[in-house]
Amino acid sequence: MTTEADTSAPATPAADGAPPASAVPTAPEGGNILGDQPGAAAPPTDVSSPEATQPGTETKASDTPGVPEKYEFTPPEGFAVDPEALNGYEGLAKDAGLTQEQFAKVTEYGLKYFHDQLGKQAEAQDLRVGNWMKETLADGEIADGKTLRPEAREAAGRVMERFGGDDLRKALVETGAGNHPAIVKAFISIGKAMGVASPPDTGNPVPQNAKGNGLDDIAARMYGNGA
């Protein structure tokens, strides 16, 4: 029985042990099934292609399917967003390939998370300052359990007026330091050391005839002739 000869040419092995050209699978027409799926690895780039090395062919974040050119975000009620900080965050979101929906969910979660953490820190600070006040008012030497004793309040107020005034008082209130036992006691001690408020002693006038450089002359210029 006569059989027809196979006229197809046998696959010729490529150099260096590479598989024959006919053995390399080709993608079906209409796209790559796996490559078109979200999260699938991109098909390898043919480095021998001129387009692979041609400048300006890199894929931009905005060219990624689902990534918008500009993200839109409306903060939840009671929240404020710094536009400059949000712009920097948008760049990171584009690099990560976030869609508009993903961006909105992640951003809202982040805002609420940090708001919650800041709230907890504020509560902890309020508790800390309250404990400072209780400890200060429990000190019988300077307080009666409810408020500072009159002489202690007067001494602390003397320091306040002399060295800081309203700005110092405001800083002590905003930071809570005005309730700290060590701060309160320091103000009272300084005020007591200052004594009753009085005009500063300007000393005696320098004698006009004290022009020598001896110790007595220097003392006379500094302290007057009675030195």
Score class of each variant (00 low, 15 high):
residue 221 R to P: 03
residue 174 E to N: 09
residue 13 P to Q: 12
residue 163 F to W: 10
residue 132 W to P: 03
residue 97 G to C: 07
residue 105 K to C: 01
residue 145 G to K: 01
residue 180 H to Q: 15
residue 84 E to T: 10
residue 94 K to C: 05
residue 58 E to F: 08
residue 51 E to A: 11
residue 194 M to N: 10
residue 225 N to Q: 12
residue 52 A to N: 07
residue 46 D to K: 04
residue 163 F to Q: 02
residue 217 D to T: 04
residue 216 D to M: 10
residue 64 T to W: 04
residue 170 K to L: 08
residue 161 E to L: 09
residue 58 E to C: 01
residue 67 V to T: 09
residue 29 E to F: 07
residue 185 K to W: 03
residue 133 M to Y: 04
residue 223 Y to P: 01
residue 195 G to T: 12
residue 160 M to E: 09
residue 60 K to G: 13
residue 78 G to W: 04
residue 92 L to R: 14
residue 40 A to D: 06
residue 82 D to K: 04
residue 212 G to T: 03
residue 49 S to F: 06
residue 147 T to Q: 12
residue 58 E to G: 09
residue 213 N to P: 00
residue 130 G to H: 07
residue 151 E to G: 00
residue 182 A to F: 09
residue 180 H to K: 13
residue 69 E to F: 00
residue 200 P to H: 09
residue 4 E to T: 15
residue 149 R to N: 07
residue 217 D to V: 05
residue 180 H to Y: 07
residue 28 P to A: 12
residue 174 E to F: 06
residue 50 P to C: 00
residue 114 F to M: 09
residue 83 P to L: 03
residue 152 A to P: 02
residue 117 Q to S: 09
residue 33 I to G: 08
residue 106 V to W: 02
residue 113 Y to G: 04
residue 197 A to W: 12
residue 216 D to G: 13
residue 135 E to C: 01
residue 146 K to S: 13
residue 167 D to Q: 11
residue 170 K to Q: 12
residue 188 I to S: 10
residue 32 N to T: 04
residue 171 A to W: 03
residue 165 G to D: 06
residue 10 P to S: 14
residue 89 Y to C: 01
residue 111 L to P: 01
residue 219 A to Q: 09
residue 227 A to G: 02
residue 29 E to L: 10
residue 167 D to H: 03
residue 108 E to H: 01
residue 44 P to D: 10
residue 30 G to P: 09
residue 151 E to L: 01
residue 217 D to I: 03
residue 104 A to P: 02
residue 187 F to P: 08
residue 205 P to F: 05
residue 163 F to A: 03
residue 112 K to R: 14
residue 5 A to Y: 14
residue 109 Y to E: 13
residue 94 K to E: 05
residue 24 V to T: 11
residue 183 I to S: 05
residue 131 N to S: 14
residue 116 D to P: 00
residue 110 G to Y: 07
residue 181 P to I: 06
residue 77 E to M: 01
residue 71 Y to W: 03
residue 128 R to W: 08
residue 170 K to D: 15
residue 215 L to I: 14
residue 39 G to K: 06
residue 177 A to P: 00
residue 33 I to M: 05
residue 121 Q to K: 11
residue 71 Y to S: 03
residue 195 G to H: 12
residue 90 E to A: 05
residue 82 D to I: 02
residue 8 S to L: 15
residue 223 Y to E: 07
residue 227 A to N: 10
residue 36 D to C: 01
residue 123 E to L: 11
residue 2 T to K: 14
residue 33 I to T: 13
residue 104 A to N: 04
residue 78 G to R: 04
residue 157 G to N: 15
residue 74 T to A: 08
residue 117 Q to F: 06
residue 29 E to N: 07
residue 138 A to M: 04
residue 127 L to Q: 15
residue 162 R to W: 00
residue 149 R to G: 02
residue 14 A to V: 12
residue 77 E to V: 05
residue 87 N to S: 11
residue 65 P to S: 12
residue 139 D to T: 07
residue 18 A to C: 05
residue 95 D to G: 11
residue 130 G to M: 08
residue 124 A to K: 12
residue 212 G to N: 05
residue 171 A to V: 09
residue 12 T to P: 03
residue 142 I to K: 02
residue 176 G to C: 07
residue 187 F to Q: 11
residue 65 P to N: 11
residue 178 G to S: 08
residue 12 T to S: 13
residue 191 G to S: 11
residue 2 T to N: 15
residue 149 R to C: 00
residue 18 A to D: 11
residue 203 G to Q: 06
residue 62 S to F: 03
residue 197 A to F: 07
residue 145 G to P: 05
residue 147 T to G: 02
residue 105 K to T: 14
residue 63 D to A: 15
residue 34 L to F: 08
residue 70 K to G: 01
residue 43 P to E: 09
residue 219 A to Y: 00
